[in-house]
Design a protein around this nucleic acid. Structure first.
Lengths: 257, 257
DNA sequence: ATGTATAATATGTATGACACAATAATTGAA
DNA sequence: TTCAATTATTGTGTCATACATATTATACAT
């Protein structure tokens, strides 16, 4: 392995320095969420730099999700949500995704989600039960051919359980999984166009367990649900591999007759 | 609860549009990592906008980690790493951290890491074994009073196991956990200044299991290791709570004599 | 071929200007 | 006096221009 050195960028740009400065202020709670920052002009004066530098710094901060720029109104410290915090993940996975992520994702789901479900059973509020019931109703009313909606509801169900666990780190941990699922589902549907979803029944049993605060049942039912989904995913992988293989054969025969 | 709607910012700024445009090109692989983008001037011409708009767009893209701006040289499409992808997480957790995250993090670690360790035992390469051995040696040589280094090595060990699992989603999933651990460790050390770490022994047993490809043992040993760490963490929580309580009492008596 | 000096290039920063929407201030009506 | 409509002000969005300075390429000398 040949190591490589990165170029040394000695003098940081002004805008970066401004970014770091403001970022530090936010981290140190000198600037609190919702608070309005000084105007561009004032910032220019404070840092003794041009508006160019200040504006570029503010754009970077907004791209990072630390501030919100309200057009022609002002710059405000943003109350970062977990969703924004992991927004970069979506882009990353969009770029790096490949088909064997399907198995990897399901392995992880099998490991984590039953536990999360148990915690949900232990800590769920009545409000979350209500939300989950609503979700189930919507799924019941969803026409079987409307895959789009069904996927959304399925995802929502699992995310609501993550929230119901009352462990604030769980949604962060599961974010990569949830980011990848739409793509995985799309792949499943393109290769098994007329697969039938049994999500509704599984969700019903899971919700019942959570409702009754039956931690063991919640764990078990979620385990069963994910195992079933994983099985489906495995079938898809097989089909994709077979198709790829067939394609390969076809190519070989045409290339070297 | 009165809901509130956020203002709709219809006319997106020019720089935003440019960002979306270039972002799309990167996502569609029209621009590949390492590739140099046109110069600012050329981009101005292509989009028919001022240099201001282009520059602000480029700054946002660089803040998002999609491009790297080399000073006075050019703008290059960045090959996003998973670390960059979740860089926003660090900021978020810095802002949101509170003491009960300790328990939440350990709950999650108990749920996930044994599984990850099992996968590592199944899929580990000889290279990863070597790396893990090196880590263990360094930890053995680490003086017990050097908490800083020990923490780093401990974290490294767990991250290396995550990598050894050969599941590319695992490091992403565990990122929030690893982001929080330094802070948690710092808290432990401030409240139990002379606690003694038994990490070395546990790590030894874990590595042995992985080396022998003994999946069950790997699972079990990691489970034991994390359970032990969680126990310590619980003690710390107790101590903190007691201190807080004592402080509370003190305040009460001084305020209302 | 290697190293140095020069020129061309691209980004970094500053300044000034103006459009336009959002807010604040003012005015007018009930 | 209170509320609504109008006007004024403010602050951001965008453009144009200029120059500084570091990087890269070119040419030249050794």
């Amino acid at each position: 392995m040949s190591i490589s050195f990165n170029r040394i960028q000695r003098p940081v740009t002004l805008s970066q320095e401004i970014v770091e400065n403001i970022e530090r202020s936010i981290l140190e709670r000198k600037l609190v969420p919702g608070q309005k920052l000084p105007t561009e002009q004032e910032l220019c004066a404070m840092f003794s730099v041009s508006r160019t530098a200040v504006r570029e710094a503010l754009r970077m901060l907004s791209a990072k999700g630390l501030v919100t720029i309200k057009k022609r109104s002002g710059i405000f410290v943003n109350d970062m949500t977990s969703t924004e915090a992991v927004s970069g993940l979506g882009l990353y996975l969009e770029l790096k995704f490949e088909k064997d992520y399907i198995l990897h994702v399901f392995n992880i789901r099998q490991a984590i989600e039953p536990h999360v479900c148990r915690w949900a059973a232990a800590n769920r509020s009545t409000a979350s039960i209500w939300e989950l019931e609503k979700n189930l109703l919507k799924m019941k009313d969803c026409p079987p051919e409307d895959r789009e909606t069904e996927s959304l509801l399925d995802q929502e169900f699992h995310q609501m359980i993550a929230a119901a666990s009352k462990n604030p780190v769980v949604p962060l941990v599961l974010q990569p999984v949830f980011s990848l699922m739409p793509r995985i589902r799309a792949m499943v549907y393109t290769h098994i166009p007329n697969c039938v979803s049994a999500a509704l029944e599984y969700h019903r049993r899971i919700l019942d367990a959570i409702k009754q605060r039956d931690e063991e049942a919640a764990f078990r039912e979620m385990q069963i649900h994910i195992a079933n989904a994983a099985e489906q995913a495995n079938e898809v992988i097989d089909i994709i591999d077979k198709k790829a293989h067939a394609q390969d054969e076809a190519n070989r025969t045409t290339v070297s007759p």
